[in-house]
């Protein structure tokens, strides 16, 4: 998505990326980025929270209006879980002794499926 934003900017069209994967967007490098530190899935606000959705969308518009140089990141003030905010971060894509064997098995299974698909001429081409 960040590559698309860059292409539009190169063509003279101003953009703002609104997302929660800060490192991926910033490494790619975009003109404007509104970052909310939430689990991936709700970059423009929590479900059912119209006020927050309006605020985040509004901040994206603010950034379009007021930024004057590329790589401008604005972090919104919203917190996913004020009491246990590290829980979702630690849980996502976790690798530890509790799931290491299961992950290795899932990878093996996936490679078998991909090989089968390749042999049948399916796949992305």
């Amino acid at each position: 998505m960040s590559l698309v934003a860059r292409h539009l900017e190169e063509a003279g069209l101003p953009t703002v990326v609104v997302g929660s994967a800060r490192d991926i967007v910033e490494e790619c490098g975009v003109s404007r980025f509104v970052f909310t530190d939430f689990p991936l899935g709700n970059p423009t606000g929590k479900p059912g929270d119209v006020e927050m959705q309006t605020a985040i969308t509004g901040m994206a518009l603010d950034l379009l209006e007021h930024s004057w140089q590329p790589r401008t990141t604005m972090q919104t003030p919203f917190v996913w879980n004020a009491d246990q905010n590290d829980d979702w971060r630690d849980h996502f894509m976790k690798v530890d002794d509790s799931n290491r064997a299961a992950l290795a098995a899932a990878g093996d299974q996936r490679r078998v499926s991909q090989e089968a698909a390749k042999a049948e001429g399916r796949g992305r081409g």
Binding site: N42, P47, W88
Partner: peptide
């Protein structure tokens, strides 16, 4: 995305 911690049933969240 983080299917364990949230959902995408509300269009305006994404």
């Amino acid at each position: 995305w983080d299917k364990d911690n949230t959902h995408t049933d509300d269009l305006d969240t994404y």
